[in-house]
């Protein structure tokens, strides 16, 4: 296996573009996760009535239960999105960058 030249990678604009893109995705998904969760937490703290209101007049199920389970499900979906993107978009770019630097 040929050794990649680190200086070549550092000067390859593709590398910096990749890092930027991957970080952007990571941060956006983190922010969505935090907004969801801290939104839920802030509602617990300041608007519990909204969370405990029943989802329908003839139901005992509170809105917050749907929200809580929803956060768990959406969290799994967000991790799925990241993994899908990383496997299908980022990994091939990383390989390209390493190959170009190994020539």
């Amino acid at each position: 296996m040929s050794v990649a030249d680190n200086a070549k990678i550092q000067s390859n604009p593709k590398f910096h573009a990749l890092v930027k893109r991957r970080n952007a995705l990571g941060w956006i998904l983190s922010i969505i996760e935090c907004i969801m969760y801290f939104g839920f937490t802030l509602m617990i703290a300041f608007a519990p009535d909204v969370l405990t209101a029943p989802i329908a007049s003839d139901s005992v199920i509170p809105f917050g239960m749907i929200l809580g389970v929803g956060i768990i499900v959406v969290s799994c979906v967000l991790t799925g999105i990241y993994v899908y993107q990383a496997n299908n978009t980022f990994d091939p770019i990383v390989h390209e960058i390493i190959e170009e630097a190994s020539k």
């Binding site: 995705l25 969760y37 839920f40 509170p62 917050g64 389970v69 969290s75 967000l78």
Partner: peptide, 24 residues
């Protein structure tokens, strides 16, 4: 009752953050 769900949610939401920031 419902209160327990707050912990279920809280104990899960760290995981996506681990993936998006530090795992790889």
């Amino acid at each position: 009752g419902f209160y327990g769900l707050i912990f279920s949610v809280g104990w899960l939401v760290g995981w996506p953050i681990i993936l998006f920031t530090v795992a790889e």
